[in-house]
Design a protein around this nucleic acid. Structure first.
Length: 695
DNA sequence: GAGCACTGC
């Protein structure tokens, strides 16, 4: 077969520059490669970022907000907090905070920095993530934490008064809590002019952050600006970017072809291929493997490997094994390799130009998971993965003319839409209300969520009785809902469990629905439908099945990994469920909510579930499909549900969520009775002429 | 009859 035709732009095309990447991993890489006989201080001074130390400190003095643009491994997240610490920003018991979007990043950066500072982790340098607080209120001066954790701290300390500087790392990812924090920080800075904020971002959106933070300043007078951009030039290895000459019909086929071309024409070095999902990856690896025997005799061998989040951890680790002799590793990955997982030694990147993204449709109240063109920012990030250890090459499986510019419209966006503009935001609005922000229309979102999403979310919070007619948080119900780390529906169910006397069981169900999808251990094929054969199945549906599985685990599996294996129970996921349950129980204790057992009365449990899930009700049709009570949309049972192979005796179910992929699939179902809907949610449903109606 | 991108409290 002829090689795929690529075009190399003569001049630097937009997108050929390589931006940042997650720095946490970069710092860890530095740990292994550093010269053993250099003192820690000497090593730190050799980092390229050290040249910018004075400039950085000066900008923090002069400006309220500093936007730092820098590349992978330049030491932003490890060095800047230390510079601030050394320069006195942590005197008088003040703390420098640095947020990370992911737990592993927070712990690994903190570990590295503690080592550099010469502190025991949890002393001068510490971290806080859910379930793990390795920090000391009296002694910790540099604190790493997940952005969600810092957001939560606002509930007890609305001005974040113990922090002198707050650094928001990886802000360009625009996660929900990052955006919420940006809005809060902007508000806090008005009341605390001495507070300093550092935003670490990618070149592509630094200007957006600048405009956001300078929007209140006098635009004619730059000397009054609050914010400034600081670029830490430190170059990475160059990455040469190539594009297809013509658009391709089938990027999976083009990816296989390109991998073969690289393998036969390019010097040694591993390949990272970005695709969109598990099924696609497995299929491409199959196609590639089938063609391996067409390789000329004596050529380098090829080792294709998959990488996606639902792959069991042991199989994920295989990608880090060094390539066998005379073998080229080719890793086929989802977006997980874009920021969360860093693989060293990648010299070639193949980018299909697409990504699977979840967007919330406020009209149908459904999440839609679709394959869409990935952004230019994401393309830059993917390309950067080829230049971590040496110069690399990136092959984009689309023509250069597809790239967006300020003037050229393209299906490919410049940046990925922020999470807050494409999610069900009821949880976030509830939490903002709990922070005393009643007028959400006036909250300064960097990217305001569409007004229909705001309206839907508020309407829903009202139906759950979290807010009143005026939009004020109800007390104590709404306030407590906001405090519990659960989605609003499950939070309401948990709080309602006192009245229905089933707290023991609801605690377990709430903990299990948080990570139910990772329950099985044998890869994706083993899901709820497999559990069914493992004796945990409850006729009443998935929630009770989860309860049975948890109870069996506590009794037999907790200390017996072979029992877990035999029963297809993921030990890690269930242990996590135990932690979540314990944490939730503490909230109920603090609220003074009595936790009782329903003592086997499943009806009470199911009624309690209806008290929160009432919005998500569906009725079975004669053809076996379901119709939603709310919109009359056609729904299907997800194959991972125990209800996939049975029919609800009453004809009615409630479900945790719908996700639209090839069809609209309901996940986590429980069989209910129609009457309960009217009885437990009279504000939402009535009977009219013998039929259930939504108000 | 047949399927989930990735995080986080």
């Amino acid at each position: 077969m002829p090689p795929v035709q690529f075009w190399k732009p003569g001049t630097a095309a937009p997108g050929s520059s390589v931006d940042r990447a997650s720095e946490a991993e970069g710092s860890l890489a530095a740990t292994s490669s550093r010269a053993a006989n250099l003192s820690i201080d000497a090593q730190r001074q050799r980092l390229p970022i050290y040249k910018h130390r004075q400039k950085l400190l000066w900008c923090v003095e002069r400006y309220k907000v500093m936007i730092v643009v820098g590349q992978t491994g330049c030491g932003k997240s490890t060095q800047i907090p230390q510079y601030l610490h050394e320069a006195g920003w942590t005197s008088e018991n003040m703390v420098v905070a640095c947020t990370q979007p992911r737990r592993v990043a927070a712990t690994s950066v903190a570990t590295r920095v503690a080592e550099e500072v010469g502190s025991v982790l949890g002393d001068e340098v510490g971290y806080t993530i859910r379930f793990e607080d390795l920090s000391s209120p009296a002694r910790t001066r540099i604190k790493y934490l997940t952005d969600g954790m810092l957001f939560r701290e606002c509930m007890t300390d609305p001005l974040l008064s113990k922090y002198s500087v707050i650094m928001i790392d990886e802000a360009h990812e625009r996660g929900a809590y990052t955006d919420l924090l940006l809005g809060l920080l902007k508000k806090i800075m008005k009341k605390r002019p001495e507070l300093r904020v550092i935003i670490s971002s990618a070149t592509i959106d630094a200007q957006d952050f600048l405009e956001y933070f300078n929007s209140n300043a006098d635009s004619a007078d730059r000397s009054k600006d609050d914010a400034i951009i600081v670029s830490l030039e430190g170059r990475m290895f160059p990455v040469e970017v190539c594009y297809l000459k013509e658009p391709c019909q089938d990027y999976a086929e083009a990816a296989v072809q390109t991998v073969f071309d690289i393998h036969l024409r390019e010097p040694a070095g591993d390949v990272l291929v970005f695709l969109t999902g598990r099924e696609e990856i497995d299929q491409v690896i199959q196609t590639l493997s089938d063609r391996l025997q067409t390789l000329p005799r004596g050529s380098l061998k090829m080792l294709p490997l998959p990488l996606y989040a639902t792959l069991p951890p042991e199989e994920q680790m295989i990608i880090f094994d060094p390539s066998p002799r005379d073998t080229r590793k080719v890793i086929f990955s989802t977006n997980i390799a874009e920021a969360s997982v860093t693989i060293d030694g990648i010299k070639y990147v193949v980018d299909c130009g697409f990504v699977k993204m979840k967007t919330f449709n406020p009209r149908t109240c459904m999440d839609v998971l679709t394959t869409t063109p990935s952004s230019l920012a994401s393309a830059n990030q993917r390309a950067g993965r080829a230049g971590r250890t040496s110069a690399g090459k990136c092959f984009r499986l689309y023509p250069a003319s597809f790239l967006p510019t300020r003037n050229r419209h393209s299906p490919m966006p410049i940046t990925t839409p922020p999470e807050l503009t494409r999610s069900d935001i009821s949880l976030y609005l509830l939490q903002l209300k709990a922070l005393g922000i009643d007028n959400l229309a006036k909250f300064d979102f960097m990217s305001p969520p569409p007004s229909e999403m705001m309206a839907r979310a508020l309407e829903f919070l009202f139906c759950l009785k979290a807010i009143d007619e005026e939009g004020k948080l109800t007390s104590p119900f709404g306030r407590r809902m906001a405090e519990v780390p659960l989605d609003p529906m499950m939070a309401a169910i948990l709080l309602n469990s006192q009245e229905l006397k089933c707290g023991e069981e609801i605690l377990t169900i709430a903990a299990m629905t948080q990570n139910a999808f990772n329950m099985s251990s044998g890869g994706m094929k083993e899901t709820m439908s497999d559990l069914e054969r493992r004796k945990f199945t409850a006729e009443e549906g998935d929630h009770l099945t989860l309860l049975n599985a948890y109870n069996a685990f506590v009794r037999y599996g907790q200390k017996d990994k072979s029992w877990c294996g035999n029963h297809r129970i993921n030990h890690k996921a269930l242990s996590r469920a135990m932690s979540i349950r314990k944490q939730l129980k503490k909230f109920l204790d603090r609220f003074g909510i009595k936790v009782e057992s329903c003592a086997g009365d499943a009806k009470r449990l199911r009624r309690c579930l209806v008290s929160g899930y009432f919005k998500n009700a569906a009725r079975m049709m004669p053809d076996g499909t379901f119709k939603s009570a709310r919109e009359g949309a056609t729904l299907y049972v997800h194959p991972s549900s125990v209800m996939f192979t049975r029919q609800p005796s009453t004809g009615w179910v409630i479900y945790h969520e719908v996700i639209e992929t090839t069809k609209s699939f309901m996940r986590d179902l429980t069989v209910i009775e129609e009457d309960w809907l009217v009885e437990l949610a009279p504000h939402f449903y009535t009977f009219k002429g013998g039929n259930l109606k939504k108000h």
